[in-house]
Amino acid sequence: QAFLLQSVEKAITETDSLDPRDPDQLTTTLVDDAFFILRESMMRSITTCDVNAVCAVVNNVNGVVSGEFRQALLSNLAESRRIYSNWVTHPKNLAAPAKGEHPLASLFLDQEGRLRSPLTSALSWPHSLNNLHQSLDNLDRLKESIEEAFEEYFPSDGPDKDKRVMFQHCVAAFAAAKGDLESLHANQCKEGLNMLKIHLRPMLDPLNTLDYNISEAQYADCQVNDPFAKAFNSQAEVIHQHAKAVLNPASAEEIMQQMAEQTCRRIEKAALSKRFSLFGALQFESDVRAICSFFTNVSEQALRHKFARLFEMSSLLNLEGVDELREMSSEIRTWRLAPDEIRKLLHSRSDFDASEVEIDRLLPY
């Protein structure tokens, strides 16, 4: 156990490095080196043909992953976040790099413009997050390889068949370690979005003053001179391209999914505080569809469901009278909006003619 800890500690503190010349190398050496040591330790224990020795080493490996290795990942994330959070506030650092140039090139330089040395994951938050995600994949492969080797050395009809359950119990403990790292990854993606949102927040500010109680002429002007969605999508795409360039696909996807969800909540909040004309409702629908289209196009996973409440809001706001409200109420079995939200939206229409009694009669509450 002491040798195992010492070897992993060396991979964490002494040999960790990243290549500043290779933009395709998203991780540092830390993860591969550490998991190589963990795998070799378990494989050697299996060749002893002693189930008790195997289980002891498997438990030690799981302890290292849940303890020292996890703490190293956390420490690197915390230290690198301090540097990256300042670096990423500058718009020029999100711009697409020249061909062959590393998108994080300036992050790797010290205040005098010299390349930091040694260059480790503690100096690059994207690499630290990629290390964390790579650890999830490596943990799966580690578990799979040790189970295959165990089957070879300890067959189900062998002399130690009654002890196989001991091994299975020890290996099952890896699930808890993986679950913990998955939770850590999700939280770190939220941290990443919080750092990147500084560039998106100004694009959401127009929602505070945007007027949806507009005339037909104003609506026509909005179609030509988009006051909100186009600029938002343009800036969101800059963030998306940066995330794609420096993060593994799964982490970049998680950040975009969270961005979509937070954007929806922000627009919902704004909509519930506005006044709408019918033309304003049409403009609101146009904005929602444009932003939904952007996130759908850049995401690998389905996320249209995140916009479900906004589309329901849009449908309500675009009703032209009580008859259409009656028809909509008969078609929707389960509303995503709360009763008070529905009433608030209907009353926010400056040109929707319906009494409180008529609205109450038609809503299924």
Rank of each mutant, 00 (worst) to 15 (best):
L119S: 06
R164G: 12
L129A: 09
A72Q: 10
Y153V: 02
L139C: 15
P118H: 04
S106T: 14
K190G: 14
I146K: 07
S135G: 15
L115D: 13
D140T: 00
S124W: 01
S80P: 13
L109C: 11
A72T: 10
A95S: 09
K99G: 10
L132Q: 09
N130E: 09
L119W: 01
S128G: 09
R141Q: 13
I83M: 10
I198G: 08
A173W: 00
K190Q: 13
A98L: 10
P97R: 01
Q111V: 04
D137H: 11
D162K: 04
A172F: 10
L107W: 02
L181W: 08
P91G: 06
H133I: 05
K163Q: 13
M166C: 12
A72W: 06
L94K: 01
N76W: 00
L104E: 15
R114V: 09
I198R: 11
P155R: 00
P91N: 07
Q168P: 02
P155M: 01
K143I: 11
S124H: 02
E147M: 08
N187L: 12
W87S: 05
H127M: 04
P126D: 04
P103G: 10
A172Q: 13
Q111S: 14
N138V: 00
N86S: 15
E191P: 01
R114D: 14
E79F: 00
E147T: 14
E144T: 13
Q71Y: 07
E147W: 00
R81Q: 13
R114G: 09
N194Y: 03
G179R: 07
E144K: 10
A96K: 12
D140L: 02
Y84R: 03
W125F: 14
G192N: 07
D180G: 11
A105S: 13
W87A: 02
F167T: 09
A98D: 13
S106V: 06
E112F: 03
K163T: 06
